[in-house]
Simulated scan of single mutants.
Amino acid sequence: MKIVILLVLAYLLGSIPSGLWIGKIFFHKNLHDYGSGNTGTTNTFRILGRKAGIIVFILDFFKGYIATCLPLIFNVHGISPVVFGILAIFGHTCSIFDHFKGGKAVATSAGMLFAYNPYFFLFLLIIFAITLYLTSMVSFASVACAVIGGLAVLIFPSIHFIFKSYDPIFTILTLILAFFIIYKHKDNIKRIMNHDENLVPFGLNITNQKTK
């Protein structure tokens, strides 16, 4: 029963729509009506500004982090912490508090990875930063991390880099998460191919997107 309660708690924790609530309470704006319509970090930055975006990123990050730590906090064994993190990610993208809408799961996924394996998180953070600088696109960097992260969990354990051995549950759930993140960015991928994706105000824009 304790495990079931904590699994539900992980989902509810992830379901907290940080961007949506901050937008409505402090800016009197519904993020669903602006930009991409998502309530995650990127759209918050774009619509509500840097301070709001940073706050939403921190909150969404720690939703994934805390959910993944629930088994440790409550001394629960027999189930992978990643399962709790995945439920928080699902809650973030399909929130019960927001008519089952949400963000694209990048910040919450980062929190889950940081709680489970900080070294793997650091590796993907470096990939994200480099890709973001080269392309000036959060979406491209997010998809790149999903692709490289999916490949890494298949390859790294075999060469004992970051991972000492394979964790079947973590590997499978990470692959599912990678495909899910790519799917959530399908519209962004189309815009990238059309050279019409939104850009951040720095970086090299090596794919020559039209500036927005």
Rank of each mutant, 00 (worst) to 15 (best):
G19E: 05
Y65T: 02
L154R: 13
G91D: 05
S109V: 08
Y119S: 12
L13V: 13
I189Q: 06
H77Y: 14
D187E: 15
Y119M: 13
N30V: 08
Q209H: 10
A152L: 10
F163M: 11
G35I: 08
T207Q: 13
P157H: 12
T207L: 15
I192C: 09
Y116P: 03
G14W: 00
A67H: 08
I5D: 01
I25V: 15
S36D: 09
D196W: 09
H99A: 13
S109R: 00
I159H: 11
G102E: 06
T93V: 12
I86P: 00
I3K: 14
I176A: 15
F170K: 06
F62D: 02
H77Q: 15
V8C: 13
H32K: 15
L48W: 08
N117L: 07
H77E: 15
S15Y: 03
H92M: 11
G53I: 01
K186L: 09
F170D: 01
A10E: 06
V4R: 02
N43L: 07
G23E: 04
D98E: 12
C94I: 10
I127S: 10
A178Q: 03
T211P: 06
L125V: 11
A10T: 04
K164Y: 12
L134T: 02
N117W: 01
A88E: 01
I169S: 03
F84N: 03
S142P: 12
K164L: 13
N208M: 12
Y183V: 04
I130Y: 07
V138N: 05
C69V: 03
S15T: 04
V106R: 00
I169T: 14
A105C: 14
L72W: 11
W21L: 14
T131F: 04
F114Q: 12
P17K: 01
A105K: 05
S136M: 03
G40R: 03
Y166A: 14
L48N: 02
P71R: 01
S15D: 00
T108R: 12
F123D: 09
I22Q: 05
T108C: 12
L13P: 05
L175W: 02
L177S: 07
S165P: 10
N188W: 08
R50G: 02
N30K: 11
P157D: 12
L20Q: 04
I5L: 15
D196K: 15
Y65C: 04
G23W: 03
S142Y: 07
G19Q: 04
I86Q: 00
I58R: 09
I159M: 05
L175I: 15
A107P: 07
H195W: 10
L122E: 01
I22R: 02
F74T: 01
H185R: 12
T68W: 02
L31R: 05
L13Y: 01
M137P: 00
I162A: 04
H195L: 14
I176R: 06
I181W: 00
H99N: 15
A105D: 08
I5H: 01
P157R: 13
H195N: 14
G35S: 09
G78Y: 09
N43R: 07
N30A: 10
F120Q: 02
V4F: 15
Q209M: 08
V147F: 13
